[in-house]
Amino acid sequence: MLEIPCPFCGPRPEVEFRCGGEADIRRPADPDRCSDRAWTDYLWNRTNPKGVHRERWWHVHGCRRWFVVSRHTVSDTILAVSDSGQTAQPQETAADG
């Protein structure tokens, strides 16, 4: 069981978290201008690397914050964590109505 250093709560056991898969998957800003292939790429295709993987984790039984963990997929060593809220790019808000 991994020990995950939550950037808000400190090191906590894996059972307090849920993994949200690969980080840095940006939802295309204008889905209508997206080809079917680009959209399905966004939905399903992941890099699944052997090596350092940036992945999203959610401290569900803690502060309930999402953040990004850099984990080596072979050794499971956690190299870095960052608050995803700060790294996310603000997007244009959709027009109302």
């Binding site: 849920r18 949200g20 939802r27 999203r56 959610w58 569900v60 309930r64 914050r65 999402w66 995803s84 809220g85 996310a88 603000p90 997007q91 808000t93």
Partner: peptide, 15 residues
């Protein structure tokens, strides 16, 4: 609840 929190935090934190 998790779904709402996730989208708010990770995709639209400016809302």
């Amino acid at each position: 609840l998790a779904w709402l929190e996730e989208w708010h935090q990770t995709e639209w934190p400016e809302l």
